Amino acid sequence: MSRIGQSRIGLSSYAFFWQLSDQVSEPLTIHDALGRAADLGVDLFQICDYAPLEDMDDADLAAVRATADGLGITLELGTKGIQEVHLRKFLHIAGILGSDLLRSMFNTPGHTPTTEEAVDIFTQVLPEFEAAGVRIAIETYEQVPTQRILSVVQAVNSPFLGICSDPANTVAALEMPQQVIDQVAPHVLNMHIKDFAFSRKQGWVGFTYSGAPLGEGLLDYDYMVEKIQPKTRNINQIVEHWLPWQDTEAETIRLENQWTQQSLDFLRSK
Rank of each mutant, 00 (worst) to 15 (best):
I4S: 05
Q6V: 03
R8V: 11
S12H: 02
S12D: 03
W18S: 04
Q19G: 01
V24Q: 04
P27V: 09
P27S: 06
D39C: 00
L40N: 09
V42Q: 10
D49G: 02
D49C: 08
D60C: 06
D60Y: 01
A66C: 04
A66R: 14
D69W: 05
D69E: 14
L71A: 12
G72D: 11
E76I: 00
E76C: 05
K80E: 12
E84F: 01
R88V: 14
L91G: 07
G95M: 05
I96N: 01
D100C: 00
D100Q: 04
D100V: 01
L102T: 10
F106Q: 03
F106G: 05
T108W: 00
T108P: 00
P113Y: 09
T114K: 01
T115Q: 05
V134Y: 03
E142Y: 14
V144L: 01
P145N: 06
Q147V: 15
I149M: 13
S158A: 11
G162W: 09
I163H: 13
S165D: 12
D166K: 10
D166S: 09
P167D: 05
N169K: 09
E175W: 10
E175D: 10
V184W: 08
L189K: 15
L189I: 09
N190D: 14
N190K: 04
D195S: 08
A197R: 13
R200S: 08
S210N: 00
G211C: 03
G211D: 02
P213V: 13
L218H: 06
V225K: 12
E226C: 01
K227V: 10
K227I: 11
N234I: 04
Q246G: 06
E249K: 08
E249T: 08
R254A: 15
N257S: 13
Q258T: 15
W259F: 13
Q262I: 11
